[in-house]
């Protein structure tokens, strides 16, 4: 397998990075990087780490990094997680850094501890922290419950001062969305599976409205909606498919849709096969309204969708 860390890969311009990923020869991983500057979204970092964990450390070949920003990879814990030497020394830890280094989460208790510990690292006020905690909890629990990922969920996040944005990335190398969703709903492609997974009330665990005792099919819809209301990017990559909810212009009123294809988005199904799921999300801290009013808008759509789907299944009276 081969991954090249480019000069820049954020959710808006991530496609060339994903297209350059080569999944062939899965027992080996070669990492190369831009020689001058590497600036990447935590989703890219989590993806690299998740893939690296599927390979023995001795089978990872990482070229000597030359980019001025190479310390970022060290600081985010990439080499430590992959147990490979970096050849990079950090003399002084940046005290004002607001980031969550790459963390591997494999069980429920670890996730609860991680959520408690991550907010002080990001220096967020309680009001700002709630949607972030919500997003991380729901996404990681999805991995723990559905992905059957041997290496768990790989999470990282970073606060970007200039845009006042928290960027979060979560990756796994589990079974992927299609394998999960098709346990209950037909989906012939990875993109169709992603579309179903983002639709309110749909879960791979049951076809029953209201879900099971454990799942209601709401998590990804809520997360996509949080990104949409804060007018930010949201991305899912699974199998050969990518769905990306695009930023909404500040001049337009935000409307939530049950069908993710009605949102302003881009989608493609020509990417190298990703064995699992990668999610990236940006949340501009001050664009997120009060969490309770956000929940109102989200659940109006959720309940309306459930009601309409239930109505579709009504039997009609037969008159002779």
């Amino acid at each position: 397998m081969r991954l090249h860390l480019p000069n820049s890969a954020f959710l808006g311009n991530i496609d060339p990075f994903l297209l350059s990923f080569s999944p062939s020869y899965p027992a080996r991983l070669t990492l190369t990087a831009n020689k001058k500057w590497i600036s990447i979204h935590p989703a890219v970092l989590s993806l690299v780490a998740a893939l690296g964990l599927t390979v023995k450390p001795t089978r990872i070949s990482c070229e000597k990094l030359e980019a001025t920003s190479k310390h970022y990879l060290q600081r985010m814990g990439l080499f430590k997680l992959l147990r490979i030497p970096s050849g990079i020394t950090i003399k002084e830890h940046e005290p004002a850094g607001r980031f969550i280094p790459l963390t591997r989460i494999t069980n429920s208790g670890q996730l609860s501890r991680f959520i408690t510990e991550m907010i002080p690292l990001l220096h967020l006020e309680p009001r700002q922290a709630t949607p972030i905690k919500y997003v991380v909890s729901e996404l990681v629990r999805n991995v723990l419950e559905h992905a059957q990922a041997e290496h768990g969920a790989i999470v990282s996040a970073q606060y970007y001062t200039k845009s006042n944005t928290i960027r979060i990335g979560i990756a796994d190398t589990g079974v992927g969305i299609k394998a999960t969703i098709t346990q209950s709903y037909p989906a012939s492609t990875h993109l169709e599976a992603i579309r179903l997974a983002l639709t309110p009330g749909i879960t791979g665990t049951t076809r029953r409205e209201g879900g099971t005792e454990f799942n209601a099919g709401a998590g990804l819809f809520v997360i996509k909606s949080i990104a949409k209301v804060s007018r930010d990017f949201f991305l899912i990559y699974s199998g050969n498919a990518l769905y990306k909810a695009l930023k909404n212009p500040a001049t337009k009123q935000v409307q939530l849709y049950a069908d993710p294809f009605r949102d302003r988005h881009s989608a493609r199904e020509d990417l190298p096969f990703w064995p699992g799921t990668v999610v990236g999300i940006d949340i501009t801290v001050d664009n997120t309204p009060e969490f309770t009013s956000l929940l109102d808008s989200i659940w109006d759509v959720y309940i309306k969708t459930i009601r309409e789907r239930k109505k579709e299944r009504y039997r009609r009276a037969q008159f002779r």
């Binding site: 709630t130 209201g210 969490f291 929940l295 659940w299 309940i303 459930i306």
Partner: peptide
């Protein structure tokens, strides 16, 4: 927030 989430779950469970 907690009140809102409880109300939502109670609502949709009665819809299902």
């Amino acid at each position: 927030t907690v009140k809102k989430i409880i109300a939502i779950v109670v609502d949709y469970m009665q819809e299902g």
